[in-house]
Design a protein around this nucleic acid. Structure first.
Length: 481
RNA sequence: GCCCCGUUCGUCUAGUGGCCUAGGACGCUGGCCUCUCACGCCUGAAACACGGGUUCGAGUCCCGUACGGGGCGCCA
């Protein structure tokens, strides 16, 4: 935590600035998390801004999806989300100030002319660089009543150094940076202008974003310089790649966070997984939010890209499921169920016969066996199963004639059990096995098959306790002979 | 093509010149526990991209090569 502004008087201000193109994808979620943690770790402020400068990208549903995703992850921002589009006038104002200061100029090059120049450069196999003839003309030299764009007069010699907290100092030769557009010919601001003006106006002190913006930082820093504004601290974090090392695609991880929620992941697990992608604190793997806030710093962020690994996410999720208390888990399941396949039917069934009570009772047995909430629901299917149970093939195979006669004998034994509790039931079954000279497994496996219709389940004694006396005995009777 | 950045077990990473016969985690082997499956515990295999320097000494510093990534819009 050796960040420069850490010990200065003013607390840092950071922001997450997604463009509203779709859902909150996994890379964006991590960027948001890093920003949020940085703010929390340094008693700073975390703001949200929607980069909707390009109206074609505007999409209210996307804004909502992003907000929902952030809320679900527990990343709350201060105040209302800022709409970049709404601030277009201010952006134009700054562009005009730059114009009067002589730091920018009116460029009458048309998009068509530019396209031709680009094509020609390509044909000649040389790097295309915009050299606007208007750069050195006077402010009144242009044609009257012609649309023009406003370009920043970038320095043409020397170099621009981006002092980056993650990447280190990154040097760009100014001759490689051309005069980019601040204001389009229709008067609307471009992204570069808008980001800088908004970050400045919002008091953003630290810009933490993906490395795909590193080159932009060189350009953008020249706007700060031209306006004589203090530069923010930059921190460009590496991107997240798919499991095959290629760019994140839908197949492996580029899903929205809501997709992970629907798959039964816990927000704290996803957060823990995401923070370890690119950031580390020694050998620590499982970290509470409080620890994260305590430990997070820009100096712990690595420079190389990470691959998304579902298995590790699953493992983390399993950890958090095991550590969750039953009521919290139940609430999560409750909100998730309606979105799951066949979930509404399960909800209906759980509403009958004390289903929820039974589920809660079964949770301790289900938790260590599940990697996701969906797996818990799946494992709890025996609770809502209706008699006579449909048996899985393997379970049916277990219930051969021998097994069925064992179950018949066992069932009459169990009828005499008064306290229908796991321990007493286990005692009863164990002594039954001993008396009949059978190994416990020879009794328990057929029981499991009869009780759940499966070969895998929580301990059979727990299952019987959850199911209750009459249901348990009835299911055993169904498979007795 | 040009400009930036990166490269430690399959994956995420620790490592800031000697503590490294390179540590942890996920996954994978084998085993223990055990009514099944998990959990838990114990084991094992598995990496410093390559080539040159610098240094008494390099995973750690420098240069080059290869590979990978990002960027080169009146998109964000």
């Amino acid at each position: 935590m050796a960040d420069t502004l850490k010990n200065t008087d003013s607390p840092p201000v950071v922001r997450f600035a997604p463009s509203p193109t779709g859902y909150l994808h996994i890379g964006g979620a991590r960027t948001a998390l890093f920003n949020w943690l940085y703010a929390k770790a340094n008693s700073g402020r975390f703001l949200l801004r929607i980069e909707d400068t390009d109206r074609a990208r505007n999409n209210p549903d996307a804004v909502k999806a992003i907000a929902d995703g952030l809320h679900w992850l527990g990343l709350d921002w201060e105040g209302d989300a800022v709409s970049q589009f709404a601030r277009a006038e201010r952006h134009a104002e700054v562009a005009h100030e730059l114009l009067t200061k002589g730091q920018a100029y009116r460029c009458y090059l048309t998009p068509d002319e530019l396209a031709d120049m680009r094509k020609q450069a390509e044909a000649e196999k040389r790097a295309f660089k915009i050299r606007s003839p208007w750069r050195d003309k006077g402010p009144d030299d242009g044609p009257k009543n012609q649309p023009y764009s406003v370009r920043l007069k970038m320095p043409q010699t020397g170099e621009t150094v981006v002092e980056d907290k993650v990447q280190g100092p990154v040097t760009f030769a100014n001759q490689d940076l051309d005069d980019f557009i601040l204001l389009r010919s229709d008067g609307s601001p471009t992204y570069h202008l808008a980001v800088v003006v908004d970050d400045h106006d919002m008091g953003v002190t630290h810009v933490i974003r993906g490395v795909d913006h590193l080159n932009n930082a060189a350009r953008q820093s020249q706007i700060y310089v031209a306006m004589d504004w203090p530069l923010p601290v930059w921190a460009h974090v590496p991107l997240i790649h798919g499991s095959d090392g290629a760019k994140l695609s839908k197949r492996h991880g580029a899903l929205g966070v809501e997709a992970y929620r629907a798959m039964g992941y816990l927000p704290e697990a996803l957060r823990n997984y995401l923070v370890r992608l690119g950031w580390s604190h020694g050998d620590d793997e499982i970290m509470s939010t409080a620890q994260l806030i305590d430990w997070f710093g820009l100096d712990g962020i690595g420079k190389s890209p990470a691959r998304f690994d579902t298995q590790k996410l699953e493992d983390l999720n399993a950890h958090y499921i095991r550590d969750s208390d039953d009521d919290a888990l139940l609430r999560h399941i409750q909100t998730l169920l309606p979105e799951m396949e066949g979930g509404s039917e399960t909800v209906k069934k759980l509403a009958e016969n004390d289903g929820w009570t039974k589920l809660k009772l079964a949770l301790p047995g289900l938790k260590p066996r599940a990697k996701t909430l969906c797996a818990i629901v799946e494992g709890a299917a025996f609770i809502t199963a209706e008699r006579p149970l449909t048996l899985e093939p393997k379970a049916a195979k277990l219930l051969d004639d021998d097994a069925k006669s064992v179950l018949a004998k066992l069932r009459s034994q169990l009828e005499t059990v008064d306290a229908w509790q796991p321990q007493t039931l286990e005692d009863a079954v164990r002594s039954f096995a001993e008396d009949t000279g059978l190994k416990l497994g020879k009794v328990a496996q057929p029981m499991r098959a009869a009780l759940t219709g499966r070969t895998v389940s929580p301990p059979v004694f727990d299952v019987m306790a959850v199911l209750g006396r009459s249901e348990s005995l009835a299911r055993l009777a169904d498979q007795s002979s």
